[in-house]
Structures are given as C-alpha cells and as structure tokens.
Design a protein around this nucleic acid. Structure first.
Lengths: 146, 146
DNA sequence: TGGAATACCAACTAGTTTGGTTGGGAAGGA
DNA sequence: TCCTTCCCAACCAAACTAGTTGGTATTCCA
C-alpha cells in the first residue's frame, strides 16, 4: 500500500515544472537533466515517467537543443489525480471494484470491499480536489516553518 | 496501491469468525478448512495469515481435534485498523514519513509527501473508526439489496 | 553543414514482493 | 493409537519495481 516512485517522481517533476511555469509562463521549458540532477533521480527513468504525462497532455515538449519540458496548462488547472491516475493506475485500494467483475470469484470478498470502498472514496476526495498549485503552496507554507 | 490479498483474506476470516462469535459466544471455534473452502482461499496461505492475527491477540485457538480458531473478543471491540496494520504494515502511502527519516535523500520528496500525508490521515480515519462488527452490519445491509 | 544538445523510444535486467506450496511437526479427543 | 486439527519453517514461481542500455530523431548554432 505504497505510492510507488513513479507517482512520487511524477509529482516532483510536475512541481518543478510548475515553478518554472509560474516564474515565466512564456518560456517555461525545463531540461530533463536539470530536474533529474536537482532531485537526484535517474535521468532515463524520469524521462519515461514524464513521457507518460506528456501522453495525457499534462506536459508539452520542445525537441532539439534549447528544447525541454513544460506544463501544458496552469498549475491551478492540473489536478493531482490526473498525475497519479496516469502513473499509478486507478489508485483503487480494493480488488473487484465493479459488481459485474466476474474475475472476483470470492463473492465474500465484499467483506473487504466494504472497507476498501470507503478508503477509495476518501482518497479520490483528496486527490481530485488538490491541484499542483495547491501542492506548491502547501510546500512553501511548510518550508517557512524551518 | 492495492490492498494485498493478505489484508483481504484477513478481513474475510475475521468476518467469518465474527459471525460464529455472534451466533454462539460460548463455543465459537471455526476450523481453518471451513473458512478456506467456503471462501475459496488456499488453506496453507490462510493459515499463515491467521497466525499473524493470533500473534497480535485478535484470535485465540484450540488445538487437536475439535480444535479451531475463534475471535479473542467481541467483534465490536476489534478495529479494522488492528487487522490491517498487522497484515499490511503501516498502510502508509508516503515514503519518508517522519521528518527525521535520513533515508529520504530527496528532501523535495515533500512535494509528494504533502499529498501522501493527507491521504494517510483519511485512511487512518476510516479504518480506526470501523470495527469488524461494522463491516458485518454493512455487509448484511448491502446483501439485502439483492 | 556538422556537431552538440536535447527529446523520444524499445528492449533488457537485478532485486524485491506477492501469493502461494511442501513437508513435517505438536497437541488433543475418541 | 489414530485422526484431526493447529503450528511452523523452508522453498518457489510469477509479477512488479526501479531502473539501465543503447540507439534514433529534432533542432539550434557556429
């Protein structure tokens, strides 16, 4: 029951891109290497993660030298859920989600389903109501404490 | 981000034991095989799961023929969290939970930590306020619909 | 026009975790 | 003395995680 590094790195990259975006919306391209080095993440691995986020149109790219990655839209318009669903799958704690799921042999799985359903609702509530901008703000807020 | 079968099977077993407990608190021992067969779970695997729950004193046992497993206390006094923490670990979505965690090299992990913290709080809220009896009741409630 | 810098992409891999299985005890009732 | 049950440790295949390797395609700049 852990968020994998995929999700974590994805959020980190999005946050870095968001900072660049807010600093200068006109030219906010960041080079992969910059993020990877700064955050101490494997370049090749991060690339694959970002590729997924591009595929879902959260990120746009510029190829060639002077190229890089940028957010496709304002951080306030990107939900955390959009990032995590893409990178972590449905983020669905339970097993047989739909009642029509035939692969769920153990009907009585529903004992656990009752618990899972409640957890799922709460998780969705959190990540669908939180934007990348919110994450950034919370982080800055938190940093001040130190 | 899935609950593993360990957690699921654990909840199922606890629910079955709870039914037996409520039916007859004086003699509520259930044989492993009964649960495993009824729920279509590998006997040997379920045994290992139940062993863990015994270790945390949620379950008591009777050896020999006429032996079996029983809840150690009333279902209303067993929190879902007790079961899941034992079987699934801390159920902590984030990585470096404590701020003193030195293994977290990426300080900026905290971008993801902000999200994880909120999710963790919600999950804890759900499972620490839900008892095995609640699960059972919800299940019966749900069954009526069909 | 050639090279440097960048994004793009697919195949491979070591290590860990999951979800078991196998095989043999030990205790207790009939 | 069986038989039934719980108890326990060692083993294992498949899937997943977290990458790595090695190459291709664009684009800018000198």
């Amino acid at each position: 029951m852990k968020l994998s590094t995929k999700g974590k790195y994805g959020l980190i990259a999005m946050a870095d891109l968001a900072i660049a975006y807010l600093n200068n919306p006109n030219d906010s391209y960041l080079v992969l290497k910059t993020i990877a080095t700064k955050r101490n993440i494997s370049e090749a691995y991060l690339e694959r993660i970002i590729a997924k986020l591009k595929k879902t149109n959260l990120i746009i790219t510029q190829r060639g030298s002077l190229g890089g990655y940028s957010l496709a839209k304002h951080p306030k318009d990107i939900k955390v859920s959009e990032v995590l669903y893409e990178l972590e799958g449905k983020l669905d704690v339970g097993g047989c989600s739909s009642s029509s799921d035939k692969s769920c042999i153990i009907k009585s799985n529903c004992f656990s389903q009752i618990v899972c359903e409640e957890i799922n609702v709460k998780i969705r509530e959190v990540i669908e109501n939180m934007t990348i901008e919110d994450v950034l703000k919370s982080y800055l807020e938190k940093s001040k404490e130190f």
